[in-house]
Amino acid sequence: MERTRVNVTVGLFVLIGMLALGYLSVNLGRVSFLGGVGYRVTAEFPSVGGLKPGSTVEIAGVEIGRVESIALKDYQALVTLRIDSRIKLQEDSIASIKTKGLIGEKYLRISPGGSEKIIPPGGRIREVEAPVDFEELLSKYIFGKV
């Protein structure tokens, strides 16, 4: 019947479209359907220089979370991270902002510490390391102040 045929083709079209949309947004756009899994920790940096919400958080090159938001607090950059709940961070972990490759994008690297104490959800990473400013480094080198 005519009606059924139209329904099937429309159904097929919508299904293919939704799959494509789903592929784009979940795989590339990183939309998490579980939304807000993991726990939050914060870290304050003197400068985030290029780190953006959505940037990855890694330990030893393995992604363990994402940067959720970046705000200014007392003229310091307050970075909120969402960390996989299976990963425990020691209180003396060091958060540092690194660059992938020479001109690659910024990411946040956490170097695990040795403390017995674990940072609770909502806690703060105290040890931070600001990103290396290449320009500054370069000019210091050129003008011989290093």
Partner: peptide
């Protein structure tokens, strides 16, 4: 309104 975003998504993916 419904079909254009879907078709765009298909276009992008392909």
């Amino acid at each position: 309104l419904v079909t254009f975003p879907l078709m765009t998504a298909i276009f992008d993916t392909v």
